[in-house]
Design a protein around this nucleic acid. Structure first.
Lengths: 357, 357
DNA sequence: TATTAGCACTCTTACCTAAAGAGTGCTAAT
DNA sequence: ATTAGCACTCTTTAGGTAAGAGTGCTAATA
């Protein structure tokens, strides 16, 4: 048998073994591979090949005389080169869109709903991480007085995200003055990046004439009270769902494993940290982080499937799945990928009219 | 021995047994009770009393020839009549306040932080359920145009809660007109209950003269697009934390139990339903729902400790713990009670200046 | 009458062993 | 290069036993 045909057969067997293991969750024996895929060779031949695959590090045996299981390296090769993606049919896409978007009234609804639905149909844990607003551009600012010393600050960004913050001032401010400050800020800070707001305000203080100086000074009072930087830094939405799904997976019947994973999923900070580590600036495709590829200890028997989504060409969040390394990649990768596209489309659409302003 | 002395001894033994079981998580034997509490009677006497307590249904044996365990009825009696509350020291209260409130900038922060902290120091699962706004009174309304057909509606209620909704209109509306509608609504709908907004709007349509009619009509367009009722109905905040805590409890090493509990904790709808069932209009004290007292099947080996909190004398949410019926009630009841008071104080304080408006 | 020492009895838990079964690696034949 | 055959390994399951904890009951006692 020539080399390429032999390699082809090796690949076939690795693919068969991997998908069998993904389906059954039990170490795969040579005879099972033969039976399930009607290979025209004996189980002994398959065993010989399995030994080779094992030497290359693609598979391993939990113990001598058990069947084989893919290693992280095996899964990596399976995902990158072997598996056949099971794309979604058009009607599935339609249903998905309907389920995720029909009841969505604000950005937040989309964030929450998509991860809920993804958890449900993937049977894994799902998350959705909407980044903080640091590089967002201010489009509109509104100040509303709740009382003489309490002000509601409403910020609206270029991507149509709305945030509001309550500010308590030491000294009172009149409604009329507040209105003037509001107009002043909207005029002068429009198209500023949120992180730069304060710097720009101080610049205004220096540039403008006395009438405005007073206004800018008042505005500074407000933004000082807001402690902008710290606030925006932590101001991300992260949503997670499907813990009970992964509990059902046989690998997490071991409570120790489960505990480690829950520790991550339950803590927004930790989850954000893990996801940031897997972020890539150019996030056009779905990305898989398998087992030990993840530097976070508690997740080293898990895989992470992530995809970025955008608003108007800017990646604003990431979205995906957490589950055991034994995950139905061929079905779930296209799913996550499509849903990310769907989010991009929906969010961009949701905010597309902003430019008309 | 006279009757009251005999009852006193029975009570003491039930209390001892219950607190021993809470501490150790293992069925309590007659000799352990004797040893731990230096009762001046023999274990045989204690056994006789245990038989009586069992006949009354306060305790039971997991199997013949094991120690005893409190029943739901036993816990109920323990909580209502026997246990000594371990109140918080002043410095503990101070620390707690600092931890929960120091970084709080909006209502939402308080909701999230308190349940996080409660989970942490109780070692149980904690939740915080902030009711929807149906009976809130509108104090201020602001309309901000994001584009010609997209409007941001900001509602501010009497309790200082802020909510915003984006509305898409079919036909455009000018900024000037929007401003007039905004003023019109603020004037005419102020002090209206949120659920009544739409009804009141239609009344305005009939009452006012032509100039206003046009305005009110436009406003109706906006509120129709908002689908007020449905939206407010579901618009509650619910926050939950500490799943990994209850996982550590020995009663939840049984994955079946854990799964049932997680199903409730993970679903906001289900959790809200369970909590609503335990709600009491007059929520001045902390309330405990023990085991089968809860009609929700999956939680019948759990206890729920809840307390309501208020803004200006109106209960706006409830807050508390979920854990196994074997829970450290004597420590946790005062804790939940105090934290609820703390929230009432903080939220009322947070919004107290509203009246100055 | 209330209490208690003593003891037989029950049930759980841990541990051991044996048998069954699954799957392999190796060898020798094709 | 392939494969039939078989010995070997390791896991899993079941059963059986011994130890231990705790009880209920009985009869003796204060």
């Amino acid at each position: 048998m020539n080399v390429s045909a032999s390699n082809k057969r090796k690949s076939n067997i690795l693919e068969s073994l991997t998908s069998l293991y993904i389906d059954t969750a039990r170490p795969v024996s040579s005879s099972l591979i033969k039976d399930e895929f009607n290979f025209s060779v004996s189980s002994a031949t398959i065993r010989n090949i399995l030994v080779e695959l094992e030497e290359f590090g693609y598979i391993e045996q939990p113990h001598t005389s058990s069947g084989r299981v893919p290693t992280d390296k095996g899964y990596r090769f399976y995902i990158d080169s072997l598996m056949k993606r099971r794309s979604l049919r058009d009607e599935e896409k339609k249903e998905l869109k309907l389920a995720c978007l029909s009841s969505a009234r604000k950005t937040r609804d989309i964030i929450d709903k998509t991860s809920e639905i993804l958890a449900q149909i993937s049977n894994e844990a799902a998350f959705n991480f909407f980044f903080n607003l640091n590089d967002s551009i201010l489009k509109h600012i509104e100040l509303i007085n709740l009382s003489l010393t309490r002000i509601l600050v409403v910020l609206i960004t270029d991507s149509g995200i709305v945030r509001n913050y309550i500010v308590n001032l030491d000294d009172p401010i009149s409604t009329a003055e507040l209105q003037r400050i509001s107009n002043f800020l909207s005029e002068n800070l429009k198209d500023t990046s949120l992180v730069d707001i304060k710097v720009n305000l101080y610049n205004l203080l220096n540039e403008h004439n006395l009438v405005y100086l007073q206004l800018a000074h008042e505005a500074c009072r407000i933004f000082d009270a807001l402690e902008t930087d710290e606030l925006f830094e932590r101001d991300y939405d992260i949503h997670q769902d499907g813990i009970n799904n992964i509990m059902r997976q046989p690998e997490f019947c071991n409570l120790e494993y489960l505990r480690g994973v829950l520790d991550v999923l339950e803590s927004k900070e930790r989850l954000a940290e893990v996801l940031r580590a897997s972020f890539e600036p150019d996030f056009n495709k779905v990305k898989v982080t398998i087992g030990k590829e993840n530097s976070y200890k508690d997740l080293q028997s898990c895989s992470l499937v992530t995809a970025g989504y955008k608003i108007k060409d800017k990646t604003v969040g990431m979205f995906g799945l957490l589950g055991p390394t034994r995950m139905a990649y061929s079905r779930l990768l296209p799913l996550v990928e499509y849903m990310a596209e769907m989010m991009t489309e929906a969010l961009t659409d949701f905010t597309k009219n902003e430019s008309e302003r």
